[in-house]
């Protein structure tokens, strides 16, 4: 079966710049209203406007990963499917952030289940080949996500949102749909677990042995 594509011009690949006279939505209220009307141009604007946010959250949660674009796509599919349930346009940003967090966490959980099914330890799972940075930084990044793989999902998400995606505590709480106190507890536990596990990774141990609040003490 063949599918004839009918991409609107503004959604074709590479269509970054906007022609003069294009539809403009000055704020999220206008944008959400247009989305409720089913305006396709509004969908394009929403993706352009919020893709960096979603990318930052998803990339922070998953690291260098060949499936990031799939996860981001899933987030926006969820946004478009659920937009009618969004009544308060001012909550659009935090709502999208929540969807991104839950979608990324779902991805992490599915992977964990697959590992369990295959009886493989995380370090035995073959890595998806992706081109990325090389050298010490790359080693540190890989080690960081290996350590994060060992954390419980909720703690991992709180940790990556706070320290990698650099969200504020209140934003993390809102995105995870938990109280500020719960986020603080999760972060405290995640920090302890991370520092403990980091001792087993030379690339992290070297970076952290200078001390400080989270510094790894040399044994």
């Amino acid at each position: 079966m063949s599918v004839a594509m009918a991409l609107p011009r503004e959604m074709r690949p590479g269509a970054h710049s906007v022609p003069a006279g294009a539809v403009v939505y000055n704020d999220d209220a206008e944008l959400v209203a247009a989305l409720h009307r089913g305006d396709r141009a509004a969908r394009t604007v929403l993706v352009q406007r919020y893709e960096p946010l979603v990318e930052r959250l998803v990339a922070g949660a998953l690291g260098i990963d060949s499936e990031i674009s799939d996860v981001i796509q899933d987030v926006f599919v969820g946004v478009f499917e659920g937009i009618r349930s969004l009544k308060d346009a001012s909550a659009l940003r935090s709502w999208i952030a929540t969807l991104a967090v839950f979608t990324a966490r779902g991805k992490i959980r599915r992977r964990r289940r697959w590992r369990w099914i295959r009886f493989l330890a995380p370090e035995e799972v073959p890595e998806v080949p992706v081109t990325g940075p090389q050298g010490e930084t790359h080693e540190a990044v890989r080690a960081t996500y290996r350590v994060l793989d060992t954390l419980p999902d909720d703690e991992r998400m709180a940790f990556s949102l706070r320290f990698i995606s650099e969200m504020q505590l209140t934003e993390v709480a809102a995105a995870c749909r938990v109280s500020l106190a719960t986020v603080k507890r999760r972060l405290a536990r995640a920090e302890r677990r991370f520092v403990d596990a980091a001792k087993d990774h030379p690339a992290l141990r070297e970076r952290l042995q200078n001390g400080g609040r989270w510094g790894v003490e040399e044994s």
Binding site: M11, A15, E51, Q73, F76, F80
Partner: peptide, 9 residues
Amino acid sequence: LLPEIQARL
């Protein structure tokens, strides 16, 4: 990723 995601959506 943006152009790819737009096209896929």
